[in-house]
Design a protein around this nucleic acid. Sequence first.
DNA 1: CCTCTTCAGTACCGATCGGTTCAGAAGTGC
DNA 2: GCACTTCTGAACCGATCGGTACTGAAGAGG
Lengths: 202, 202
Amino acid sequence: MKTRQQAPIGRPRGFDADEALERAMRVFWEQGYEGASLTDLTSAMGITRTSMYAAFGNKEELFRKALERYTEGPAGYADRAMREPTARQVATAFLHGAVRANTRPGCPAGCLGVQGSLAAGEPGRNARDALIAWRNEGTARLGARFRRAVDEGDLPPDTDPAVLARYLMTVANGIAVQAASGATQEELKQVADMALRNWPPT
Amino acid sequence: MKTRQQAPIGRPRGFDADEALERAMRVFWEQGYEGASLTDLTSAMGITRTSMYAAFGNKEELFRKALERYTEGPAGYADRAMREPTARQVATAFLHGAVRANTRPGCPAGCLGVQGSLAAGEPGRNARDALIAWRNEGTARLGARFRRAVDEGDLPPDTDPAVLARYLMTVANGIAVQAASGATQEELKQVADMALRNWPPT
DNA sequence: CCTCTTCAGTACCGATCGGTTCAGAAGTGC
DNA sequence: GCACTTCTGAACCGATCGGTACTGAAGAGG
């Protein structure tokens, strides 16, 4: 069999799909799912509606792909935090990463996973539900990480890892709202440090 | 001069404006400003578009009035918390009130002041900015309350009341996001209690 | 009863929504 | 060069958006 991994028959795409997705992600991040019209999106992506539909499916799928890109890009701090050696370091890296990602100059303030769609009308329900799942998955992964920390003796044995995870995610979500309200990086850094002050002793 | 405080010339209004506003508030709370169409709103209010425009102005003013009603109704816990005698009691009442208000059965989950409009397109900017101002005013009032507490010796003199206020508002905002994600009242109560654990000693 | 004012409902406004169709241009493999 | 495939752009789709104009009906004051 011929493994034609690089056989793009026909006219090749005239734009950088990665770059276009990055632009779309920004628009969703800034205006939310419902607030971002196809005109907003495609004009920011520099392509026409037809090209967008051919490359990404429809608005909903474009949003999903933008969210994936967001997860691995601006929200990549979460994955990195999870790999820190101790629970305390995980928590610190997670919150500090959230503060930085939510107040990065040149990027929209806040978190796509929060303000992308928190409440929505009927046509935006799927996007909203996708974000709910996204956030809850993050909480679950934090919980799993802290459960391991309890098992390893890195956290007191009477610690409830699920509560710890939800507490951390709650503060991160709050930081996202605060960033969207105009809070500065310094202000939120202080908030994060205060939230970490009552972390259980190792 | 004739003080005609009760002289409704012409045909009186055929619906209860208060009840209608309550219904509108619920729709905004559940679907957000952009996600709530005039059709959604008026059909929930039980009146026609014409009556709505005559009674409330337009969609934006209706939203503002719904927000006022929300402030004095479901979000009334904030004002009540501010009147607690000690800073610790203020903080406790504030967070516990937020948990209860964000997970009240029969009401939409979450907080109108957060999910009403966090990110929006051009036509929803005014509503979004109104909510930003609403949240920041809450933070400022918490800050003023804690500044008083420092003056009264109720908080250590080296305490920064603004940081304390922003910390509390951040946790409350996070609780709103978590409630919108499906977190239960019990789960959020645990989060609130954990957030209160590192409160400065009186 | 008559007049006046405001009500309520419908039909309608231009604009925009997300999504599609179609014609033609453009690049690739033979 | 030819056949084939896919891209691009614009025109267009029905539906819905927020907001109005207009027509009568209905209550209040004289």
